[in-house]
C-alpha cells in the first residue's frame, strides 16, 4: 500500500482527503456513519464573530449534475463553536483533525475572528479563510473578487494569527484566479484552497420565480469540476503555495485529477449529500490508483501532469 501521508503547509495529514466547508456540518453529523479520524481533516462550516441566521428558504435547488445553494452562512458564532456542546468540544473527542473555516463582514471582523481561533487553538489544526463573502461596508461586493480587498483581508488575518496555518479559500468568480493566488502568497498565506462555489441562478418557469429565495447562489457538484481543475492547474503554475483542491469531486478518479493538476490535498463537498461515505471511497480509490501505477506515496503525483 502506498503512503497517503500528506504534508500540507506545516500540517501532516493522514491522507489528502478532507471534507469541504458547509457540506459536512460541524463534523458530528457524519460521526454516526464512520470514524472521522479516517479523514485527512474535517473542515467545518464557516464561523464568524456572532451567530447568524442565514438566508430565507428555499436555500437549495438541484440542477443538472449539481446544485445551487444560498444558505447564507448560518452559524453559531465563535463562542458557541469553541465552547458549545454540539460543536468543537464534541468534535475534538472524535479525534478528528479539525480545520476551521471562518468569515467576516469587514476586514476588522476577519482579523478578530482569526485572532480568537489562534488564541484558543486547542483542537484546531488550521484556519481556512473564506473570502467569498460580501463586504458589508463596501455595498456587499465580495472580498474575494477584488484583488485589493482580498489583499487587505489576507494581510489582516496574517498579522492576527501567530500559530495556526492560514489557508485562504479563493473565489472562482473572477477573470484571473492566479492574481488572487499571487496576492495570497505575497501577503503571507500558508496555503490556498479552491474553488468556492460559482455564482449561478435557476428559474422555475411555471412559477416564473427564481428557484432559491436569494435569487442567485453558488453552484457546486460534478458540473463544476472541469472549471475547478483548470483553476487548480493555473494556480499551481503561478504560485509555490500548497493547494487544497475542490469543486465537484464525487469519486476517487476526480480527486486524482486535482492532484495531477497540482493540488496537494483535496476536499469532498456536495458528494457528501449524495453518499456520506464518498470521502472514504476517495481514499480507497487513491490507494488502488497509486498501487496500480507503482507510486510509493501520494506526493509523487502532485502536479505530475504530463504535457
Amino acid at each position: 500500500m502506498a503512503d497517503l501521508t500528506t504534508k500540507f503547509a506545516s500540517l501532516t495529514l493522514k491522507n489528502p482527503v478532507t471534507t469541504a466547508s458547509g457540506t459536512f456540518g460541524y463534523g458530528l453529523e457524519y460521526a454516526n456513519f464512520y470514524d472521522l479520524q479516517k479523514l485527512g481533516a474535517v473542515i467545518v462550516k464557516g464561523i464568524k464573530s456572532t451567530p447568524s441566521d442565514g438566508n430565507k428558504m428555499p436555500r437549495v435547488c438541484e440542477v443538472a449534475g449539481g446544485m445551487i445553494n444560498a444558505i447564507g452562512l448560518q452559524g453559531p458564532g465563535v463562542d458557541a463553536f469553541l465552547h458549545g456542546d454540539h460543536y468543537l468540544p464534541a468534535l475534538k473527542k472524535t479525534g478528528a483533525t479539525v480545520i476551521v473555516n471562518m468569515w467576516g463582514t469587514s476586514v476588522g471582523e476577519y482579523a478578530d475572528v482569526a485572532a480568537r481561533f489562534d488564541a484558543e487553538n486547542d483542537g484546531i489544526a488550521a484556519l481556512e479563510v473564506n473570502i467569498s463573502c460580501p463586504n458589508v461596508k463596501a455595498g456587499g461586493a465580495a472580498f474575494g473578487t477584488d484583488v485589493k480587498l482580498a489583499g487587505e483581508v489576507i494581510s489582516a488575518v496574517r498579522r492576527a494569527v501567530k500559530k495556526l496555518p492560514v489557508i485562504v479559500k479563493l473565489s472562482p468568480n473572477v477573470t484571473d484566479i492566479t492574481e488572487f493566488a499571487r496576492v495570497a502568497e505575497a501577503e503571507g498565506a500558508d496555503a490556498i484552497s479552491l474553488i468556492n462555489t460559482l455564482s449561478a441562478m435557476a428559474i422555475d418557469i411555471e412559477k416564473r420565480r427564481p428557484r432559491i429565495a436569494n435569487v442567485t447562489g453558488g453552484l457546486s457538484g460534478a458540473c463544476v469540476k472541469p472549471v475547478a481543475v483548470r483553476m487548480v492547474y493555473q494556480c499551481h503554475k503561478a504560485v509555490k503555495l500548497p493547494i487544497l483542491g475542490m469543486g465537484g469531486i464525487t469519486c476517487g478518479a476526480d480527486a486524482v485529477e486535482f492532484l495531477l493538476a497540482g493540488a496537494t490535498a483535496v476536499s469532498v463537498g456536495t458528494a457528501n449529500f449524495v453518499d456520506p461515505y464518498a470521502p472514504l471511497k476517495v481514499i480507497d480509490f487513491l490507494n488502488d490508483y497509486l498501487d496500480r501505477h507503482h507510486f510509493k506515496s501520494v506526493s509523487e503525483i502532485v502536479g505530475a501532469l504530463e504535457l
Binding site: 457540506t23 456540518g25 453529523e29 446544485m67
Partner: peptide
C-alpha cells in the same frame, strides 16, 4: 415539509 438536501443536519438547507 421543507425542501431537503443532506437530510442529516449538515447543510442547513432545510430550515424552518
Amino acid at each position: 415539509d421543507e425542501i431537503m438536501c443532506c437530510g442529516v443536519g449538515a447543510c442547513f438547507g432545510c430550515v424552518v
